[in-house]
Amino acid sequence: MKKFLKTLIPTELAKGLLLTGKWFCQVMFSPNRGKSKLHIVDEYPEVPAKVQPRFRGRLQLLKDAQDEIICVCCMACIKACPTNAISLVAGKKEGRKTRIPESYDFELERCIFCGFCVESCTFNAIALNHQFELAVYNREDMAIGLGGVFQSIDKPSPVGKFSYSGKE
């Protein structure tokens, strides 16, 4: 008899419905619900997304206080890169003891954001910045470099509007 009543009255289904209903009402009728703790979804395109400090985004060549590229072309990043995304040509500049990259090409198509290049760099000359909106309109723009035909390594992507450019 008890078993028959149990099959007739779906109490456990009601419990589940109660749970989902509770969450729905809590979020729906909480005042100022966009800022409530229960509201777990980010309003991403309207509100800029935040990433953690260690986030690995796009590769960037860093500059020192005199606005000069720190890189001395030791080629460590090229050796460390698992997907051969980086290539550079070393050059010289007047009044600088160390070498300076003539061109530093970085293929965004191939990069897998592992961060091995940054770890291998003993001069802290490169960093993976916090930029994550990396879409571009043309495939050619995926090649990133110091200038010329390439998309500039310092500027954010032409499509990205919200992510953070520059280190930290």
Binding site: V51, P53, R54, F55, R56, I112, L128
Partner: peptide, 12 residues
């Protein structure tokens, strides 16, 4: 994971 490793899925 993002805070510790820097990435969410492909953690390395």
């Amino acid at each position: 994971f993002e805070a510790f490793c820097g990435s969410r899925l492909t953690t390395t």
